[in-house]
């Protein structure tokens, strides 16, 4: 029953995230809010230059997406491992665990 509920909860989360992409009248450029904030600052403080630059930037969008995917994959990989370990110990310990 819980697996069932989890399925519905994930489906609802997917629907919430997909809605702006598919619903008519909800378009946009889908730029990052940090870029929008940068623009807002440029409007109120024309000529503002950030006083510090990132030490290293991913050289291209491809490399950046690699690193973001890596971050998500590492986290998701470990979560899967933890969930699998938990359910295998509860199988071994019997129903009361």
């Amino acid at each position: 029953m819980i697996a069932h509920r989890s399925g519905w909860l994930v489906a609802a989360a997917v629907a919430i995230i997909a809605a702006p992409l598919v619903l008519p009248g909800m378009g946009g450029k889908f730029k990052g809010t940090d870029d929008q904030a940068t623009e807002a600052i440029a409007e109120s403080r024309p000529g503002y230059e950030p006083w510090f630059q990132p030490l290293w930037k991913p050289p291209s969008d491809e490399v950046e997406s690699l690193l973001f995917a890596l971050q998500a994959a590492l986290g998701a990989g470990f979560l899967g491992y933890a969930i699998g370990r938990r359910s295998s110990t509860s199988d071994r310990d019997g129903a009361d665990r």
Binding site: I17, P20, M26, G32, Q36, Q71, G75, A76, F78, L79
Partner: peptide
């Protein structure tokens, strides 16, 4: 796992109703 969950979710840039991510 709590650390891993934060890592996953903060890597996922999602579109929103405001037309930004």
């Amino acid at each position: 796992a709590a650390g891993a969950f934060t890592m996953v979710l903060s890597a996922l840039k999602m579109p929103s109703v405001t037309g930004s991510c």
